[in-house]
Design a protein around this nucleic acid. Structure first.
Length: 284
DNA sequence: GTACTTGTTGAACG
DNA sequence: TCGTTCAACAAGTA
């Protein structure tokens, strides 16, 4: 599913392709997926594409911005005849478009198209004014971007300590602590830092906060390098089909041997979510 | 039919 | 009010 690295991958791919294009038309196949007045995008030009946490923003002329959240199964697929940019990987990304998962289609003045596909309709597209974007509680109260400079281990520690009694893995997923860490990367970051996900925040040493800071960055950069955390079929931004073997160290690998020490990976529930860890590498 | 999956939100708890 | 937990929601798979 699209997490921060996949949204970033999409942003980088789209940036190269649609900035400067004019939106000629829009088709909303699933009204509940599109919030706001769809017709307002007619004849607007794409100025800039940005990302905050897992939200993708496309700034348009007319002080308008399109906001996208892919949630679990959203995809953005750009098609100018051969090139596409993906999200949640499914085989239909290389098949015919539109298909039964297509919710919104943007048609540009050069007749290329951007498809918003979403199997489960958890995701959404929202047209907002620039002011609404600034006021949006979606974007306010988000913690620092984990891959940008202001995010260092002291900031991480300070923010985490607001949740001092929580298990560290649950606290990591709090979006006000750090932006964009979901269930997969929370487990992976803890593994990278060799910290047991059940450990309470207040029990971490400074050394562990430093390792966790590095662990978060490493897991996210790995994610971007591999184009997103997934073991399923994948299509890269040039349309080549690829296949990711499970690059994750722990996520989704319960009962499998740890890639570092061979110990069986355990799965537990933490904060109501599946949590994976190696009992030997991540001792309490 | 049931359990499970996700991020986000708002209710409910002590 | 607070820190924290939990149910609900969207819809599809196994």
């Amino acid at each position: 599913m699209p997490e921060l690295p996949e949204v970033e991958t999409i942003r980088l791919g789209l940036q190269k392709k649609i900035v400067g294009l004019k939106i000629k038309d829009i088709e909303v196949l699933s009204p509940r997926t599109f919030q706001g007045g769809a017709k307002l995008v007619h004849d607007k030009k794409i100025l800039k594409i940005w990302r905050k946490a897992k939200i993708l923003g496309i700034d348009l002329t007319g002080n308008l911005t399109l906001l996208f959240h892919l949630k679990m199964t959203g995809q953005l697929i750009y098609d100018n005849g051969k090139r596409i940019v993906g999200g949640h990987p499914t085989l239909d990304m290389v098949g015919e478009l539109p298909n039964k998962s297509t919710r919104v289609i943007f048609i540009f003045s050069d007749n290329s198209k951007l498809y918003f596909n979403d199997q489960r309709r958890f995701g959404w597209v929202k047209l907002a004014t620039n002011k609404e974007v600034g006021d949006s509680k979606l974007l306010r109260g988000l913690g620092p971007e984990p891959l940008e400079r202001p995010f260092n281990w002291k900031v991480l520690k300070g923010n985490l300590l607001k949740r001092k009694n929580m298990p560290i893995k649950v606290a990591l997923m709090d979006q006000s602590v750090v932006s964009g860490i979901g269930n997969i990367y929370a487990s992976e970051a803890c593994f990278n830092a060799k910290i047991n996900p059940q450990l309470k925040v207040k029990e971490l040493s400074d050394k562990q906060f430093k390792k966790l800071h590095q662990g978060i960055i490493r897991s996210l950069k790995d994610g971007i390098k591999y184009g997103g955390a997934t073991r399923a079929h994948f299509v890269d931004s040039e349309g080549h089909k690829g296949y990711f073997l499970d690059y994750a160290y722990v996520y989704g690998r319960d009962k499998h041997p740890c890639k570092v020490c061979g110990t069986e990976i355990k799965k537990i529930q933490l904060g109501g979510r599946g949590t994976y860890f190696c009992p030997k590498c991540q001792k309490l």
